[in-house]
Design a protein around this nucleic acid. Structure first.
Lengths: 186, 186
DNA sequence: AGCCTCATGTAAGTAGTTACATGATTCC
DNA sequence: GGAATCATGTAACTACTTACATGAGGCT
């Protein structure tokens, strides 16, 4: 069993063309960042591992107006490994949401504070919609149809969450009103 | 800065009543499992840490027809710590989806294989809808309105994904048909 | 003068997971 | 007889993240 880890993902990107670690980070952030995060602290060691295993090769490119860079190329062994890794079934999604945990413990928050958290979370999703639409434009001509589907998946999620969050904002305001009436009646 | 980690979440559950590690695992799985996972291997050590820090106390309960158990109770210090931790802003959500990565690299898959992956992923979401509706029934009378909102968030997500996935299943079938025509023309 | 982008890397720390280890009782 | 549920815990491992370390060139 291989599993679809960061090394495999890097191979996948390198299968489309040569890239540096820095470019891989930027490309991943814009394209798959919302469902597969990676920092420099994981990308550079992963590339080193791949080179050690003979799945990629690197060459140093000297630049005069910018720092020198290290361009990675996938090897035939790397391509074979990538295809093998893709034949494994994907593991289940994992989501981690501290926001939902805050909502879950909502009765421990003051209504105003909770409402503020919901508003911020909704705004994050609205910004995500904006970013994904930008990226959609940016990649429209170069991306595969499958890559555009991934973007639309993120868009569908963000849009459904914005609608949901608008609903609960109203609901929380009503709960707060009820609480106040109860307090006055007591 | 404290952050909303597993220890804080366990304190939150214990704030509603005494529980064992085993019960906490089961309760978390059913209620917050889809956005905050936890295994025994993380829960038992976390409870030990909390007891060491004086935020919970435990007592051993001897049972005749079942293995003995260790029931945890939150202390006043634990309650104070929980409130402090909740006053921190939640960190951003993180999603990890190997499925979307497979979709992203869809052109490396055979159409039939990809379609099979999408179908399975859609079925997972359909099953999730079923489970969440069950849990909704189970907790309707005992949960807070905020806890029900979390369930509905999961439901909204799963339902929007099912709709999205039905759309792309059709799209992938069309792409496969086009590919075949191109092959025949060549 | 100071921040942003480009560019690569390491070290220490975080926060888990999976597999192992044990064992009684109940249900089929 | 065998699987599932109840029940607790540890050890080894995975896979990151954040902060650190360095440094040139361009933009305002």
């Amino acid at each position: 069993v291989y599993g679809l880890n960061l090394r495999v993902v890097l191979l996948g990107f390198l299968a489309q063309g040569d890239l540096t670690g820095y470019e891989l980070k930027h490309l991943m952030e814009r394209s798959v960042g919302f469902f597969f995060g990676a920092s420099y602290g994981s990308i550079y060691p992963a590339l080193k591992d791949l080179e050690g295993a003979g799945l990629v090769r690197s060459r140093r490119v000297v630049q005069s107006e910018r720092p020198n860079k290290k361009v990675y190329t996938i090897t035939p062994e790397g391509e074979a490994y990538f295809r093998t890794a893709l034949s494994d079934a994907p593991a289940s999604d994992t989501l981690r949401s501290e926001f939902l945990m805050h909502l879950f413990f909502g009765h421990h928050h003051e209504p105003g504070r909770l409402l503020e958290l919901v508003r911020r979370y909704r705004e994050e999703h609205e910004q995500m919609i904006g970013r994904l639409k930008e990226v959609e434009e940016e990649f429209r001509e170069v991306a595969t149809p499958y890559q555009m589907m991934c973007l639309r998946s993120g868009l569908a999620h963000a849009e459904s969450q914005v609608t949901f969050l608008q609903g609960i904002e109203e609901e929380i305001r009503e709960l707060a009103r009820e609480d106040q009436e109860t307090d006055m009646g007591a």
